[in-house]
Amino acid sequence: MTCRVPSALVCMLLPLWMTLAPDRALAQQQDRILLSATNCVLELEKGVYHLWDHVVVEAPGTLRITCDDLRAALPQDKAPGASGAVPTGGKLQSLVASGSVVIELYQPGANGSTNVVRAFGRQAEYGSREEILILTGEPRIETASGTMIGTDALVYDLKSRTMRNRGPYRIELPADILKGSTLFNRGTNAPKPR
């Protein structure tokens, strides 16, 4: 016995499925954090993870961190009526990356493209309460349009995906950004060389 689905129903549902499926896949991808390294010590009951050597932290579609050393904490709650700890849904409480820290932030650009901003520093800290990432240790940001240096700390808000700095900063722009500009190439009334 075969079951025939009305073609009109298929026509109605197919566009809906095509819209939802990529979103669901993207959501599933964003619902995970991947940590990798050469070595690690995991305190399974305490929820304290220490990784070192070639450490990579990836939050797909959001950011990628590489560093020498990483300490992550997954909070553990006290079990009711027991002395031991129980996991609390795998939520990452804190993350401290140190040593040659490179953070790549992925931000949606125009026409479905992805803009990548690279930040460098000696230490990065993430706290789940504020959902911010603080980069310190002579931090700098490199983008296609220039480099920001000389600030005390860079603070990236993961909720709003905005970056701000602490303290003074300096921006270095590539020389060709002024190409075609008349700012340094104005007409002059000086006599032309013969």
């Binding site: 954090i33 993870y49 997954l74």
Partner: peptide, 17 residues
């Protein structure tokens, strides 16, 4: 305590924000 000496990969089912 779990100590891993080579090529460790950890997957956490959570998101940063």
């Amino acid at each position: 305590r779990l100590t891993v000496s080579n090529s460790v990969q950890i997957e956490l089912r959570t998101r940063l924000f």
